[in-house]
């Protein structure tokens, strides 16, 4: 889903400034020629568009981001809710919803048509809603046991941050659909805000929240390995750089933020490796996988940072386009 060149290149359209300008001109002209009322994507005429817009490219990147997050949530909730023996039927919900979000994200990643896809849009909306409801369930779950909202229950009961990851996946998907709808020649917006800025700030906020979750669980693990500080330092710092680039602009701030996002994406992947090693270090190691996959460090969670970093990179593309 993510290739290293993808991560390292500033953006597909930015490889060559001249090509980018030409593309922009082309897109403005194309936009001016189009006057027909917008029709839903499913009804849109088939066939490749003349040229792919930057906005659609960013939308596709957002689909990658939402997809990585959905995959992380799917695998993590499958493990954690299996651990909880699916005592409540609602515990199947995140599996179903994140599977749909993952499918929609894959579909969106492959779809370079500049329009909203109704089914995808519905799925992402549902995904975001599920995340919010799930958060409510988890908040209730933490407080419902003896001791209520005390450290013990934050450590070991349903993690409050986990359903937020699926909500974020849904919001990113939703943003992707909104971006696709951007009329040619007009600056992209999201929920009435400049798209680059809105996505940057949302990503920065999401990184902060995910950092909080990582901090809680790594604090529970007493930061026994110095690398456990990685997810509580690099992502929030990168998120701050991203917010800074969005609010104050400038090529150097964008470069710094891009470096941060790349570092965050790599940290997410490295985290998976560390967590696999962590499972090996538990009593019985991988031979005791029926216990250690559940009790050891969760292997599916660190890629959530990678997903958010992809969203950050998409945001940087949009910022770059705005400021050029």
């Amino acid at each position: 889903m993510i290739s290293l060149p993808d991560l390292l290149m500033p953006s597909r359209s930015g490889r060559d400034a001249r090509a980018r300008r030409a593309l922009a001109t082309l897109s403005r002209q194309a936009s001016a020629l189009r006057s027909a009322p917008r029709v839903p994507a499913v009804l849109a005429p088939k066939g490749p568009p003349a040229a792919k817009s930057v906005v659609v490219g960013s939308a596709q990147k957002l689909n990658q981001a939402s997809g990585v997050l959905a995959f992380s949530v799917l695998t993590d909730s499958a493990l954690e809710h299996y651990r909880g023996s699916f005592r409540n039927r609602a515990m199947f919900t995140p599996l179903v919803v994140s599977t749909l979000a993952l499918a929609a994200s894959v579909h969106g990643t492959a779809d370079d048509r500049p329009d909203v896809h109704v089914a995808r849009d519905v799925v992402f909306g549902l995904t975001a809603l599920t995340g919010l409801i799930g958060t409510g369930f988890h908040v209730y779950n933490v407080g419902s046991r003896q001791g209520g909202y005390r450290w013990l229950n934050f450590f070991y009961r349903a993690p409050i941050g986990a359903p937020m990851a699926i909500a974020i996946s849904g919001v990113l998907g939703n943003m992707s659909e909104r971006l696709r709808r951007t009329p040619r020649g007009t600056p992209p917006t999201l929920y009435g805000l400049d798209a680059g800025k809105a996505l940057s700030l949302f990503t920065a906020l999401s990184l902060a929240g995910t950092t909080g979750e990582a901090w809680l669980l790594h604090f529970r693990g007493n930061f026994q390995n110095p690398f456990m500080y990685t997810p509580v330092t690099i992502p929030p710092a990168s998120g701050a750089l991203l917010a800074d680039a969005a609010l104050r602009g400038g090529a150097s701030r964008r470069s710094a933020a891009r470096a941060g996002m790349i570092a965050t994406a790599l940290a997410g992947l490295a985290g998976t490796g560390f967590h696999m090693r962590g499972v090996a270090r538990m009593m019985g190691g991988w031979r005791n996988w029926t216990q250690n996959l559940l009790d050891g460090p969760p292997i599916p969670t660190p890629p959530a940072f990678t997903g958010l970093a992809l969203a950050g990179l998409a945001a940087l593309d949009l910022l770059e386009r705005r400021d050029d």
């Binding site: 693990g221 026994q224 390995n225 009593m283 009790d295």
Partner: peptide, 12 residues
């Protein structure tokens, strides 16, 4: 232990 320490794994 509730987390690893050196060669000691956490409690199972």
């Amino acid at each position: 232990l509730s987390a690893p320490r050196g060669k000691s794994p956490p409690c199972v």
